[in-house]
Amino acid sequence: TEEVEKIVRELQKRGVSQEEIQRILKRNGIDPRDVEHVVRRLR
Score class of each variant (00 low, 15 high):
N28R: 14
K26D: 04
I21C: 14
D31L: 03
I30Q: 02
N28A: 14
K6H: 08
V8A: 10
S17R: 06
Q18N: 13
E3S: 10
R33I: 09
V4I: 13
I7M: 13
E20R: 07
E10F: 13
L11C: 13
L11Q: 00
V38T: 03
D31F: 02
R14F: 10
N28M: 14
H37I: 14
K26I: 14
E36T: 03
R9I: 07
L42Y: 03
G29E: 02
R33N: 08
E2V: 09
E10M: 13
R41N: 08
I7Q: 08
E36I: 06
R23N: 10
H37S: 13
Q18C: 15
L25V: 01
L42M: 04
D31A: 05
V38Q: 01
D31H: 06
K13W: 08
E10R: 11
V38I: 14
R27F: 09
R43D: 11
T1H: 11
D34A: 10
R40Y: 01
Q12S: 11
R9M: 07
P32F: 05
I7R: 07
D34H: 10
L25I: 01
G15Q: 04
R40T: 10
I21K: 00
V35F: 09
L11P: 00
D34R: 08
R14Y: 09
R9G: 02
E36M: 08
R23H: 08
E36Y: 06
Q22R: 14
K26H: 10
E10G: 09
G29W: 03
R33Y: 05
E19T: 09
L42P: 04
G15M: 04
H37Y: 12
V16F: 12
H37A: 15
G15D: 02
L25R: 00
E36K: 04
E2F: 12
V8R: 01
I7A: 09
R9H: 03
D31C: 04
Q18R: 12
R41F: 09
E3R: 09
R27N: 06
L11F: 05
G29Y: 02
E5S: 05
K26W: 13
Q18A: 12
R43M: 15
E36R: 06
E3Q: 10
G29M: 03
T1S: 08
G29T: 02
V39A: 03
T1R: 10
I30S: 02
R43T: 12
I7P: 00
E2M: 10
Q22C: 14
K13C: 14
V38P: 00
R40K: 09
R43F: 15
K13L: 11
R9L: 06
R40E: 13
E2R: 11
V39E: 03
G15E: 02
E19I: 09
L42W: 02
R23D: 06
R33L: 09
I7T: 05
R14T: 05
Q22A: 12
E20V: 08
P32R: 02
K6T: 06
V39F: 14
D31S: 07
R40D: 14
E3N: 11
V4A: 04
R40V: 07
R27H: 07
V39Y: 07
Q22E: 10
E2K: 11
R14H: 07
E36L: 07
K26L: 15
E10H: 10
R23A: 10
R33G: 05
V35I: 14
I24N: 01
V38R: 01
I30C: 13
R43G: 13
L25H: 00
V38A: 07
E20F: 07
I21T: 01
I30K: 02
Q18E: 13
G15L: 04
I30L: 07
Q18Y: 15
V39P: 01
E19M: 11
G29H: 03
R27W: 07
G29I: 02
Q12M: 15
R27S: 09
V4D: 01
V16L: 13
N28G: 08
E5K: 04
Q12H: 14
N28Y: 14
R14A: 09
R40P: 08
R9K: 05
P32W: 08
R43I: 12
V39S: 03
V16G: 01
T1G: 07
E19K: 10
K26R: 12
Q22N: 06
I24A: 05
R41I: 07
E19G: 09
V8K: 01
T1N: 08
E2Q: 10
R23M: 10
L11V: 00
L11S: 00
I30N: 02
L25P: 00
V39L: 15
D31Y: 02
S17V: 04
V38Y: 03
E36G: 03
E5W: 15
H37D: 15
K13A: 10
Q22H: 09
V16K: 09
R14N: 08
K13H: 07
V8D: 00
V38W: 08
K6F: 09
E2S: 10
R14L: 11
E19V: 09
E36D: 07
G15C: 14
D31Q: 03
V4M: 07
D34S: 07
L11W: 05
V35A: 05
E20Y: 08
V35Q: 01
N28W: 14
I24Y: 10
G15V: 01
E3A: 11
K6I: 07
V39M: 15
D31P: 06
L25G: 00
L11T: 00
V8T: 02
R27G: 06
I7N: 02
R23W: 09
Q18M: 15
V35S: 02
V35P: 01
I7L: 12
K13E: 06
E20I: 06
I7W: 12
D31N: 09
L42G: 05
R9C: 14
D34V: 15
Q12D: 04
E3L: 12
N28L: 14
V8S: 01
I24T: 05
R27Q: 08
R43S: 12
L25A: 02
S17A: 06
K26S: 12
R40A: 09
E10D: 08
H37P: 02
T1K: 08
E3M: 11
I21L: 07
L42E: 03
E5F: 14
R43Y: 14
L42A: 06
V39R: 06
R43K: 09
R41E: 07
E2A: 12
R41S: 06
V8G: 01
R9Y: 06
V39W: 06
E3H: 11
E20Q: 08
D31V: 02
H37R: 14
R41L: 12
S17Y: 02
E19A: 11
K6D: 05
R9D: 03
R40F: 01
I21F: 09
P32K: 03
N28S: 13
I24E: 04
R9S: 04
E3W: 13
L25N: 00
L25W: 00
K26Q: 11
K26V: 14
E20K: 07
K26M: 14
E5A: 08
I24F: 09
R43A: 14
V4N: 01
D34E: 12
D31R: 04
I24G: 00
K13I: 08
N28V: 13
Q18T: 14
N28E: 12
D34Q: 12
E19R: 11
I30G: 01
V4R: 01
V4P: 01
V8L: 07
I21D: 00
R9Q: 04
E5G: 03
R14G: 05
R40W: 02
D31W: 02
S17W: 03
L42F: 03
Q12W: 15
R23T: 09
V35H: 02
G15A: 03
Q22I: 15
R33F: 05
V38M: 06
R14I: 07
R14K: 09
E19P: 06
V8F: 12
H37F: 11
E5P: 02
V4T: 04
V39G: 02
D34G: 03
K13S: 10
E36A: 11
R27D: 06
Q18S: 11
R23G: 05
K6V: 06
K6Q: 09
L42H: 05
Q12T: 12
D31E: 04
L11E: 00
T1V: 12
G29V: 01
E20C: 15
I7G: 00
E36P: 02
E2L: 10
V39H: 03
V39K: 03
E2C: 15
D34N: 05
V39Q: 03
R40I: 11
V8M: 06
I21P: 00
E10Q: 12
V35D: 12
N28I: 14
L25Y: 00
R33E: 09
I24H: 05
K13D: 05
I30T: 04
E3Y: 13
V8C: 12
D31M: 03
E2P: 08
Q18I: 15
E5M: 13
E10V: 11
R14Q: 07
E19Q: 11
E5R: 05
Q18H: 11
E3F: 13
P32N: 03
R41T: 04
E2W: 12
P32V: 05
K26T: 13
R43L: 15
R23Q: 10
V16M: 12
R23E: 09
G29N: 05
R40H: 11
E20D: 10
K13Q: 10
T1M: 13
E2N: 09
V39T: 07
E36H: 04
E19N: 07
G15P: 02
S17L: 05
E10K: 11
V35L: 06
R43N: 13
S17P: 08
